[in-house]
Design a protein around this nucleic acid. Sequence first.
DNA 1: TAATTCCCGACTGAATTACTCAGTATATTA
DNA 2: TAATATACTGAGTAATTCAGTCGGGAATTA
Lengths: 168, 168
Amino acid sequence: MKLSTKGRYAVTAMLDLAIHDHEGPVTLADISQCQGISLSYLEQLFAKLRKEGLVEGVRGPGGGYRLGRPASQISIAEIINSVDENIDVTRCLGNKDCQGGEKCLTHQLWEDLSSRLYAFLDDLTLASFINRPEIREVSRRQDTIASRIATMFPPRPARVGANISASC
Amino acid sequence: MKLSTKGRYAVTAMLDLAIHDHEGPVTLADISQCQGISLSYLEQLFAKLRKEGLVEGVRGPGGGYRLGRPASQISIAEIINSVDENIDVTRCLGNKDCQGGEKCLTHQLWEDLSSRLYAFLDDLTLASFINRPEIREVSRRQDTIASRIATMFPPRPARVGANISASC
DNA sequence: TAATTCCCGACTGAATTACTCAGTATATTA
DNA sequence: TAATATACTGAGTAATTCAGTCGGGAATTA
Ligand code: FES
Ligand code: FES
């Protein structure tokens, strides 16, 4: 289990998808702009998420990415693991034999902590974050702001009603 | 909150200190040899741990490092934070203003996850790891092996009884 | 004094991060 | 059918961090 900015990017992007799930696919260009991450970098991250089945891509105009499963069945741990190349090597490289054939104490202790952490993050699903009332509130407010801006500066809609998902 | 190999090194080293706490200071040379980490690198990590008051150094022969506080009052979160330079910046750099003066949804959600994770790791203390019976068992066995080896190849003792702490 | 340990700072190769560019493939819409 | 918007792929790259080396110093013990 590893946790870095890369993992944070993946998690926040997935949360974005989860929030706008009902509005159809979200484009990486939107996420890139809203969260200030480079588009190509996002593409690399999403390639990994796609390999794990956490998202599915929809090509062509009006396309984007959708969650690969219901938000209630995607855990934070899965997201982080899929982008962070969870090579959690200890000194024995997984052989558990550095103490005269036995697993050493340090190995045991770290494995223990690591699995507790994983269990914790595996229990947190995307749904458990976005379904709380205060989140719904902020989400609604931002959509309102976004649609007001959209009214003042109407963009050419790729598909009717699809551009509201551009809120951050 | 960030979690990398560096953090793991710090945590396992601190666990080492906690286990051998009753036997006097543990030298970095011991930890370096047992856990396969470079001595100078350990020195850098311990400089940070010392700044946070998590350990205290004892100079001179027979010296080493001791826990700065009882193991029951040192959390895993503290250890990781002290070495990992927890600069958990979001896009707004902590200003919470990227959504027209308001904190954006992504910021809110990540802050939320981050604090939950911190709370979890802050609840885990060194003592909660080493005081479990199965750990005490492995610890005892390793000390036995170590003292048997010490009998076969007696090292020059820096201080009477102090070298048993060389077990991994 | 000599040995052992912590302590300090500068430097360095390797790995990873985050990004850029240049394309290809597929679906939509006009 | 043509134009366009999107996902996809892979090679390359500057910046950063990781992990380690080196060369000293300072305090303590014997
Ligand atoms: S590091 Fe795996 S057994 Fe020691
Ligand atoms: S990133 Fe902090 S408010 Fe948007």
